[in-house]
Design a protein around this nucleic acid. Structure first.
Lengths: 363, 363
DNA sequence: CGTTAGCACTCGTGAGTTGAGAGTGCTAAC
DNA sequence: GTTAGCACTCTCAACTCACGAGTGCTAACG
């Protein structure tokens, strides 16, 4: 499509703004009046005709106002809003809240998702950062007796992942016994991957074998893990939107979000790198049909090539993209920074993480 | 209120059934026709007048049919449905599903909540069983080096609770160093409660002090822990209900459920013991105003006096109480049984857990 | 040639209107 | 105690209808 004239762009901007905030199709006369434009409504109509021919806006029916199309939103985002940022006071307030919470991933995620929901008035989602290493390798494991027949296995991998599971053993288990196994096996298991661990397990007997097998099992899980946990917040906002008035649409939306279909539909179209790169998918731009009714603003966060999580905003196609992009960018930068501090100082880091321009560099 | 006549009870039963399934106020003529009653609609009207005078049913407006009041539902539950059970094939299918899942609390809870939601067509909730001991005492702790400056503390209490937290230390930490601390402190800390732990911590220095303080902190958390996690499922069902048509009501509902206000509103009115005792709260019977619009069917599950969790169904006042009670009772019995197996064989158990009559005793 | 006033036309929306239907209570007869 | 009949009430869905917001087109204007 060719570049629009200055005035057409201005017009498109107004239409998007007005439609997003009011939810009703916007007409020429109303636009002239409420924005005190210096041209008549007839001129606006002519220009609107242009925009419609360019496929940027659409009318739901004759004699209704115009509504932005997916392409219209796209043009708006690409060329009309630049790189939106939150106001500095807002950034400060968010930063301040993050400083309150202790140095724990859980808390950060929780805070990120609620902040984002509040800031955008839409549903926000976040996933835990996932280590990108192809194969998990043992760093260290520990056995803790919980009950006579129950043992807790805590497995720490070289990728800084911690995984725990309960083992049930038919005989009584004592702490010294566990200590002995742990002492004997930790050395041969160091640096071992799932396949190796399974091989090692085959040579063991009794409880030690159960432990070794369980380690192999956990490693396999870490390698093949696809079920990333999705946290979300702000569902109550979305349900207020007229788009979800009928129980039908609302039900589908909730199902998508909670049933887990959302992530698997979204992930294929998200570029994992570079982090903090905000990506927007509007309506039919989404690959998966199930996402067509929605607008999505996401960014990945984390340490380059190593740990990557997802943070984003989900709502009806009619959503405040400018604000959402700004918020997602800032939150993702913040999360990258925090995760970088947690993982960044590690020896296995090969490339240092460079904070993006939206990352707070002083506090 | 005095006992109703046989026919009045039958009538109330029909009204409840009809209203719950149709959602529309039920009138005399319609009742006579669709249930082929052997009396005329006029007689029904007279009887309905009685029921209305007794406060069991109500008409939303003149010339509308009747709708059960909270007291009407209460009467229905107390005297008209006995002790509802699921069909044996249904119980079998549920039991079968539980057998598929591994011996892990997480999985059980997940399964319980989804099964209950599907079975009742409403929102279901479940909390993890919480140990009832007044003061948590250390059984054993373990330190695992995660990174140079990060240590994972795994604390096991005598009540079989496992709690973990990350410690950040300004200097580099090695595994032998951790081993030394763990060896030295595990003995004096055995059986210690929060206050004692804090006292012991005061005598330590450096990293050991950090560890000891963190243990004391965790114990204190276990003692005062009020924020029980609530899992829920079946939100999509509830949103289909006409009661939640407007975004307003739906938003409040979601907020209640996810904002955590629900549990703190519910808990004060739930009797924790005995387990598997199904309790029903209808509309204004709920103490908290925020719960007035809803009907709630809950039971506690777990081991007597020791570990207690909550499982239940939440929906609009118009909900299938009979079915919900049956489902909740069965699921709670199942969960009690499972938790009993996990905790029951423990030495700290003083009274053996006796499975209720709804507990599967053969499999 | 861009802009604008005027005009004819479309069509969704919301406010009334209206009739059908479902409901009720009451009364008198069975 | 039951029921047929009746007068009455009130919701609901359908229908009409005028309004207004919107459009595109055309002709005139600077």
């Amino acid at each position: 499509m060719d570049r629009l004239t200055e005035r057409q762009e201005q017009l498109l901007r107004l239409i998007v703004h007005e439609y997003v905030s009011s939810g009703r199709a916007v007409g020429s006369k109303m636009l002239v009046e409420s924005y005190h434009l210096s041209v008549s409504s007839a001129t606006i109509r002519n220009e609107m005709g242009e925009l419609e021919r360019a496929g940027l806006i659409d009318q739901p029916h004759t004699s209704a106002g115009r509504v932005p199309t997916d392409r219209g939103y796209r043009y708006y985002i690409e060329r009309l809003i630049g790189e939106p940022r939150l106001s500095s006071t807002e950034e400060m307030m968010i930063r301040h809240q993050f400083r309150q919470v202790e140095m724990q991933l859980e808390g950060w995620m929780q805070l990120a998702v609620t902040t984002l929901a509040r800031s955008t008035g839409n549903v926000s989602v976040v996933t835990a950062p996932r280590v990108q290493a192809q194969t998990a390798r043992v760093k260290h494991f520990e056995l803790v007796g919980i009950q006579d027949h129950v043992v807790l296995l805590v497995l720490v991998t070289q990728e800084s992942g911690v995984k725990q599971s309960f083992l049930h053993w038919h005989d009584m288990v004592t702490q010294p016994q566990l200590r002995a196994i742990s002492d004997r096996l930790n050395t041969p298991f160091a640096g071992v991957n799932a396949a190796d661990a399974a091989a090692l397990a085959a040579r063991e007997e009794g409880l030690a074998r159960l432990v070794a097998e369980s380690i192999a099992e956990r490693l396999r899980e870490l390698d093949t893990e696809t079920s990333v946990e999705l946290q979300h917040a702000g569902l109550e906002h979305a349900l207020q939107q007229p788009e979800f008035a009928g129980g039908q649409a609302a039900g589908q939306f909730v199902e998508l979000l909670r049933g887990g279909g959302f992530l698997s539909a979204l992930l294929p179209q998200v570029q994992p790198e570079p982090a903090d790169n905000v990506q927007v998918f509007i309506g039919t731009e989404n690959i998966a049909d199930s996402l067509h009714p929605y607008g999505i603003v996401v960014a990945t966060y984390g340490v380059r090539h190593e740990v990557i999580g997802l943070v984003g905003v989900l709502g009806p196609r009619r959503m405040p993209y400018e604000r959402s992009i700004g918020s997602v960018r800032y939150i993702s930068g913040l999360m990258s920074d925090l995760v970088g501090r947690l993982y960044g100082a590690e020896p296995f880091t090969t490339e240092p993480y460079t904070p993006g321009r939206n990352t707070p560099d002083h506090d």
